[in-house]
Design a protein around this nucleic acid. Sequence first.
DNA 1: TCAATATGTTCGCTTAACCTAACTTTTAGG
DNA 2: CCTAAAAGTTAGGTTAAGCGAACATATTGA
Lengths: 258, 258
Amino acid sequence: MTAREQNLSESLEDYLETIFLLIREHAVARSRDIAARLHVNKSSVTGALQALAERALVNYEPYGYVTLTPAGAAAAQKVLRRHEALRDFLVKVLSIDAAEADANACRMEHAVSKTVVDRLVEFAEFVETCPRAGAKWIRGFGYRCQEAAAMPEKKECARCIEQCLDEVKSQETPGATKTVSTTLSKLKPGERARIDKIAGTGPVARRIADMGVTKGSLVDVVRVAPLGDPIDVKIKGYHLSLRKEEAAGIAVTRLAQA
Amino acid sequence: MTAREQNLSESLEDYLETIFLLIREHAVARSRDIAARLHVNKSSVTGALQALAERALVNYEPYGYVTLTPAGAAAAQKVLRRHEALRDFLVKVLSIDAAEADANACRMEHAVSKTVVDRLVEFAEFVETCPRAGAKWIRGFGYRCQEAAAMPEKKECARCIEQCLDEVKSQETPGATKTVSTTLSKLKPGERARIDKIAGTGPVARRIADMGVTKGSLVDVVRVAPLGDPIDVKIKGYHLSLRKEEAAGIAVTRLAQA
DNA sequence: TCAATATGTTCGCTTAACCTAACTTTTAGG
DNA sequence: CCTAAAAGTTAGGTTAAGCGAACATATTGA
Ligand SMILES: [Mn+2]
Ligand SMILES: [Mn+2]
Ligand SMILES: [Mn+2]
Ligand SMILES: [Mn+2]
């Protein structure tokens, strides 16, 4: 449903995605680079840009710079979210190697409904988070895939159980889980936290609520600008840029790195 | 890569898949029914059949019956395996509802490489099989998705841990795992088993080996013909029809139902 | 048996996404 | 400042997938 939701063909979605990424990387998207990334002829790019301009997704005039309209940027980000969610799932959960995961993700991204992507994101989080599943468990699957011969299943499963017992025990020990409460604005790039409370009811609170973010959701800090403003985070697969004051209103519990 | 592997477009893959299923269901594939299933005009079906005939994937002549050539049947089964693997993953692991899972699977099936499908099948098996993960664990995720409100995360996780301990304990109790060794030919439809040994080196053994089936692989019995011959099974996502004598050469351990 | 209906095909046309070749504009070095 | 080279566009063509209308064949039940 996704591609059709906005009457955007797979092809046009890829153009949008590519333009968005090029702008992010090089500040500007040149026709030449779009062509190179998508492995198409430059005349095909012109055609696509005209199609996107007709749909008011890009600002285009011959020989001029190409920029995304707000609608275009929004559409591009949706595609990108699907791409990243699928890629991360393939890499982190299924242990597919990076290149193949990316290629598959970029084809699958046009085929999955929002429901499925949301669920996929949630599942990846669940796998990394649930004390019973845990990152180590999934790593066990990774090993099994990559070194199936070297690690016979029975042995792997026995190890599995041991780890499980250990982890469950340490989880149950009172005080073992020392929660470090803070706010989102205090985190550094690469850190992960669990959302405890979102203050206020402003546009940011609403935007976050629209993403299905609830009290227990995970948040990853992607990038923090020099003075801590803005702060780029990823929640439920969505990239989000928050003002420092907005981030300060979000109470979180810092988590151990994945 | 998959769709392009054989220069088959997504559209033609869907035609093949549909023809295969119709033949299986109604013994014969009528143009009218193909059109209905794929929501296309009947003239489009004629066009597709001609394209498939050119590629020697169907036997086609105007107003005649349509059948699949061996190559066509093989291609159709590949598509179907991808479809089913994706659908089962979406339903069993991600708890997506049947209709949406099926629709998504039928779009995704054209986008995933063999590597990814294989891994997905393996993962679903792992999730259902690993004593640490177990079917109940994944059901926990299902609950979380469907009744998120009714079942706050903390409670869910606590329950998770309890179940884990219980299961691990019962797994460790000596004698608790009473393995019932038998052969594939003795199983009934719906039963699941783990492969222990494949006797012989004939074409069947080779065919099975080509699927990446190893000693620990799961096998599900789909259908057994009146006199136990042939027996239809599903291994690693592949549907397979075995002669009774072939099945008798495969030693298995009967497992509890999923 | 034979016409009405159901089923299937052909024809002509449309749209999307490509391509190549030729043309135009921009850019950047001498 | 001027001219190649680079970048971008246009024109014209191909292929795939689909549609509707008109035509052809098959089925079937009165
Ligand atoms: Mn893509
Ligand atoms: Mn992509
Ligand atoms: Mn399909
Ligand atoms: Mn399908």
